[in-house]
Design a protein around this nucleic acid. Sequence first.
DNA 1: TGACACGATCGAAACGTTTAGATTAGCGTT
DNA 2: AACGCTAATCTAAACGTTTCGATCGTGTCA
Lengths: 339, 339
Amino acid sequence: MLHVAEAARVSVATVSALINGTATVSPELSQRIEQAIRDIGYKRNAIARSLKMGTTRTIGLTVPHITNPFFTDVVSVIQQAFDRAGYAVMLCCTDEDLNTQDDQIRLLLDRMVDGLIVARVGDGAILKGIVDDANVPVVLLDRICEGVDTDTVVLDNQRAVFDAITYLINLGHRRIGYITGTSDISPMHDRMAGYREALHAAGLPIAEELIRFGNFHEIDGYNATMQMLSSHDRPSAIFSANNPMVIGTMKAIRDIGLSCPEDISVACFDDFPWSDVFQPQLTTVAQPVQAIGEQAANLLLDRLAGNRDAPPRKLVLKGRLMIRNSCRPLGAIAQSVSA
Amino acid sequence: MLHVAEAARVSVATVSALINGTATVSPELSQRIEQAIRDIGYKRNAIARSLKMGTTRTIGLTVPHITNPFFTDVVSVIQQAFDRAGYAVMLCCTDEDLNTQDDQIRLLLDRMVDGLIVARVGDGAILKGIVDDANVPVVLLDRICEGVDTDTVVLDNQRAVFDAITYLINLGHRRIGYITGTSDISPMHDRMAGYREALHAAGLPIAEELIRFGNFHEIDGYNATMQMLSSHDRPSAIFSANNPMVIGTMKAIRDIGLSCPEDISVACFDDFPWSDVFQPQLTTVAQPVQAIGEQAANLLLDRLAGNRDAPPRKLVLKGRLMIRNSCRPLGAIAQSVSA
DNA sequence: TGACACGATCGAAACGTTTAGATTAGCGTT
DNA sequence: AACGCTAATCTAAACGTTTCGATCGTGTCA
């Protein structure tokens, strides 16, 4: 900018005024300055600007795994929303690891992001500490966090799983396996509650051996399914609480020589784009990813626009059961259907 | 930092020296300073640091679509690599649009990213201009760019598709439909060349009505497939040059009442995680996403480490044909196989 | 004891902006 | 002709770091 000012024989203040339109500058000077900008190929240094202005027009976004299609979609939506608003997005993947998340958030905060959208991981205590002394707005995504009182957008996980399990029960299933991630994050906790609630509502017993905990990955779903299917009294249906783990479930079913839905019914949380082109077409709980991403972005953009003091807002969205052909009717129901 | 210095009754220079370890500071002062840092909860302002140091330890990454599983995986790998190296990643999606890409890259450059990894879009001329006057290292990913002489990592697309089409030919297919994106980007151009080369090598005619251009999206694959399958002399196999479009192909096959592989064989570019758990299990050309991402990251990290003057490096990786069950043998071959 | 080297610490400039406040010129009023 | 007002422009400080060179004790050696 100094060079531009010199070349145009004006002060840097005038150049700044012209670029930002913060003051009127005469036509002659405007022209001289614009010419100089072109000649020199000047580009404003956003870092210096950020330092002075105290805003970076950049937000931080952390998700556990970008390869999980749910997060892929949400990231995509959020990225687009902030792009439209002229913000850049710094993306971090925490790999479901508490320390990594810690580091990542500090990294983002160091870089003076204007705001943060976090799909948190693990225990909320550390996050609480970070959020409290970061003086930037934070939006929690997908996972609520006890004690952290800030804008949040989540799904009604319990209800969604309740609906899915009830659907299976109505098909005649009585022994329904349930594969979940560690329940230290709210979705897993709430989904499990939905499972228990549905069984309870139908007057069915809860068989603890049919509940398996994994670590969100394909291999965990695989192992859990293998164990369940090897037992003497195997379930007739399996519900997987996330998407990567259901892949493991399908592979286990295949490897053990069974088939879906003939031998075992399968449903899972999170829809994906291929659900209805390949066989079996998985019955899933679809999250409104578009809405989730947009709402999260809107909440943060609203704070960034200056609405700092409004009380924390909690948005709870509804999932949708996508019924396809991976679950088959059992027993009497099956007969009446096929009759 | 000023406050810390005052609280510890030292100069800011000493605080800086301690934090960065750039000079020895006595035990007493160290202790006083550390105490002050804790008391105040001081965090170094990376923006001010960047301004002074001329480096942001942030890189920019642009991809056409993050929801395309190929890019999802590559982004994930790159993100991890830079995370390990202490860099942040700013992610932009260009949506296969030239102007968007233009804006995004300027946005990133404005923010003084230390380097750029670009899976470019459209015509290379504008990109060339941007890259030339950005004085940061740029790595081109997935798509080469005529006239832009910089580090690049791409697939041997022509060879990969040649192998896939040759495989179909060996199965007995003679009329093989080909659905591609616009050929202004190198992968589409090269993959098409592989298609033509394979037919030519087998002495087969090239039927131009079997080559359809789309715009990379599912709907394009759907429309192209519909057109081909409605013709009086429909192909016995279809190859789709990217992943989203093959979904369209599968949907079209379903909607028109045919089935794969019984009525029509399908193969495509880009593998995805579910390929081998659902039916039909798609035969695909798998890109070595891990290697692609790591190599791109390494090329850029090497430049960032100071190796600025080395001549541009071009890495060409090999694809791998993943043969599954979505393509069936035809005619005499089928009979000899079933015999 | 004086000169000197060395280690620890500090002062101040610099990075490239923005902006409050000062200055200047031009012009209409009285 | 002196005055005040407005519009245009400029000067200089500030944002929070890093770092060069200066300063100041302290201990060593001749």
